[in-house]
Design a binder for these strands. Structure first.
Length: 221
DNA sequence: GCGACAG
DNA sequence: ATCTTGTCGC
C-alpha cells in the first residue's frame, strides 16, 4: 500500500477515494462474523502492533485472530491517522485464513472531515463491508436517550454522517458510521449485537487486548 | 489569527 | 495512542 509523503497528498488521496464508498449493504447481507481491528503504539518509538480478531456476532466467541508488527511512518494528524495504521492492519488482515464477513474499525468512517475515515479506507482497500466505531466524535450530536439501543444523528456541515449509539443504559455513547458496503441502520444493529455486555463491541475489545499483548511481547525481545 | 482535532 | 495506583462498583 502506498503511503503519501506529505499531508497535502494524504488529504488529496482521501478526497479522491471518498466517492468510492458504497453506503448500502450487499443484497441479502447477513454476516455471521465480524472482524475487529486495532493498533497499539510503543511510547517513544514508531513501533506498532496491529491485531485483527474475528468473533461470532451471535456469540461473541473468538473464532480466529492474526497480528503484525510494523512501523508508523506517517505523523499523527487528526483526520489522517489512518495512514499510521493502515499498512500494518492490512498485513495482519492478510494473515487471516478466513476472509472476514465484516470489518469493525477502531475509528470513524464517513463521520470524518472528508467523509473518508479509517473504516472507509479499510473497506475500499479490501472491498469488504466495514463499520467505523469511535469512542469520541468529530461531529456534532445531541445525547441519545439513556436506554440501550437509542441513537441520535451525527451532523457535520449539514450532513448526517453517523450515529451516537447508546450500547449500555446510562453509559456514554459510542460513535458509529458507515465504512463501506453497509447502511447506517444495519451498522448500528450489528454494533449493538456485538456490545451485549460492555460499552464497546466485542470486536474492539478483543482487538485492543491482542494488539497490546502483541506489542508487549515484541518489546520483550 | 487561534484553538480544537478519531488513534 | 501512551505515561500511571488505587479504588469504587457490579
Amino acid at each position: 500500500m502506498l503511503i503519501p509523503s506529505t499531508v497535502e497528498d494524504a488529504v488529496a488521496l482521501q478526497s479522491a477515494l471518498a466517492p468510492s464508498v458504497v453506503r448500502t449493504a450487499p443484497p441479502g447481507f447477513a454476516p455471521r462474523t465480524a472482524t475487529g481491528l486495532d493498533v497499539a503504539y510503543a511510547a517513544g518509538s514508531e513501533l506498532v502492533a496491529a491485531a485483527v480478531v474475528t468473533v461470532g456476532i451471535a456469540t461473541g466467541e473468538v473464532l480466529e485472530s492474526a497480528t503484525a508488527i510494523g512501523e508508523a511512518t506517517f505523523p499523527y494528524v487528526p483526520g489522517l491517522f489512518a495512514f499510521r495504521e493502515l499498512p500494518t492492519l492490512l498485513t495482519a488482515l492478510d494473515r487471516l485464513r478466513t476472509t472476514p464477513d465484516l470489518l469493525v474499525a477502531d475509528g470513524h468512517g464517513l463521520a470524518h472531515p472528508r467523509r473518508f475515515g479509517l473504516a472507509c479506507h479499510l473497506g475500499v482497500e479490501t472491498g469488504l463491508p466495514a463499520i467505523g466505531v469511535a469512542k469520541t466524535p468529530m461531529a456534532d450530536y445531541e445525547a441519545p436517550r439513556p436506554a440501550r439501543g437509542s441513537t441520535t444523528p451525527l451532523w457535520d456541515g449539514g450532513d448526517e454522517v453517523g450515529a451516537a449509539l447508546r450500547t449500555q443504559p446510562n453509559v456514554k455513547p459510542i460513535f458509529v458510521s458507515i465504512g463501506h458496503r453497509i447502511d447506517l441502520a444495519t451498522a448500528c444493529t450489528l454494533v449493538l449485537a456485538l456490545a451485549t455486555r460492555f460499552r464497546l463491541p466485542e470486536t474492539t475489545r478483543q482487538a485492543d487486548h491482542l494488539s497490546r499483548r502483541t506489542l508487549r511481547a515484541q518489546q520483550a525481545h
